[in-house]
Design a protein around this nucleic acid. Structure first.
Lengths: 227, 227
DNA sequence: ACCTGAACACCGTTCAAGT
DNA sequence: ACCTGAACACCGTTCAAGT
């Protein structure tokens, strides 16, 4: 994708940490994160798996680098946003922009969640967010609570454990299962009735994300004006 | 732990799906979820890894079963709670009780997040939650939004991508890194000053969980009274 | 029917050897 | 210095064979 210096046939670009990480991201985008193996990354670069170890310490380090690369992409996007005006629409727009980047890398949220060592670019992202909150009237104490309350939502995603819509799109439930979860059945039928268009996947992820986000941002603003 | 029929020495309890799953939970509690391999579970039961395949379809099925077992433990606990009175303290107590169960299985949240097939007991848990919300005055539409807004918090945990306290407990930051994240440094120093006792791990997970939970529950109650 | 041993395909990774 | 081939330890899983 990026321009490369011309090479005589048979010649190969030297490996580098950067190329290794970008290749890993490309593989994950194409075939999912589980397709990212040392052998596959090597193959894709025309090298042996073992050659990668000169540029990343091990697979864990590679995945840390991949996460950091995605976070860098997020920072590049959100750094260009307008930060003037009241804090709430500014923070809201920032988080929704981060979300757009993650939607280009569907595997990223799951990977983010498993990393133990923290990515410098993820830290930087949160630093800027705290800056916006503070200059928007938050005490640092409230900004701190806000980071925890937002959790992964600060970066634009929320881990859904249970998608109520999964059952709906799979058609009517077996009678015995329906009897076991009467409230969900009642909820499903009413919501489906309200919105008959969305027959499949009637939970709109974006709408639900924004609902939850606004719930939190509204609540935080209320606490801000109380302090 | 549970009473077993007496066996003559050398005799062995027959395997069963239940015993396989309970053994897997015990291993995860002891040594973490990554220690749960087919070979290890077999060993622990005095059987070969391959024998497990007569009771679980494959490792994925085993992990699904493990998740469902934990969710069953949660349901057993929350079903005993008092549900009289206003919805908010009832739901709050229910979620915090679920959280207590998950704190006994630290690996469970991470596993929950990776499962694609949904556990019957997780579905049941959410069914009861919707029931409480509805009888507490929620429309089914709002209850539906509430499930998405709560996300993993409904079950008592929140995936933290970034623990601001991790840096604090690791001692003072290197100067160049501190300069790169000025807002976090300012936040850290102010919050640490407010609460000088908690020198290590100054983010109280339980306090932060409850702060975020109450933010959401308060917001939901406000929308409830508006509708 | 339930369980087993050997084997297979696939990992991440080590290491000595090449250039 | 960077890269490689063979090898090792560990997975999940298949399969034919035992009882």
């Amino acid at each position: 994708m990026t321009a490369e210096p011309a090479l005589t046939p048979g010649e190969r670009l030297p490996l580098s940490r950067e190329r290794v990480l970008r290749t890993a991201v490309a593989i994950a985008d194409e075939d999912g994160i589980e397709a990212v193996t040392m052998r596959r990354v090597g193959d894709e670069l025309g090298a042996e798996a073992m050659s990668l170890y000169h540029h990343v310490a091990n697979k864990n380090d590679l995945l840390d680098g991949v996460v950091d690369l995605v976070a860098e992409e997020i920072n590049d996007v959100v750094d260009g946003l307008d930060t003037s005006g009241p804090w709430q629409p500014v923070v809201r727009a920032r988080i929704l922009a981060a979300r757009q980047v993650l939607l280009r890398h569907r595997w990223a949220p799951g990977l983010l969640a498993t990393r133990s060592t923290l990515s410098p670019n993820v830290v930087t992202y949160h630093d800027r967010l705290v800056g916006l909150l503070h200059s928007g009237g938050f005490t640092y104490d409230l900004a701190h609570h806000a980071l925890h309350a937002l959790g992964s939502r600060a970066l634009g995603f929320s881990q859904e454990l249970f998608d109520p819509g999964a059952g709906a799109s799979a058609g009517p439930l077996p009678a015995e299962l329906a009897a076991a979860v009467p409230s969900l059945v009642a909820m499903l039928s009413e919501v489906a009735h309200d919105d008959p268009d969305s027959t499949l996947g009637w939970c709109d992820d974006q709408t639900e994300f924004e609902f939850g986000l606004d719930l939190l941002l509204d609540g935080l603003d209320r606490r801000r004006t109380l302090s």
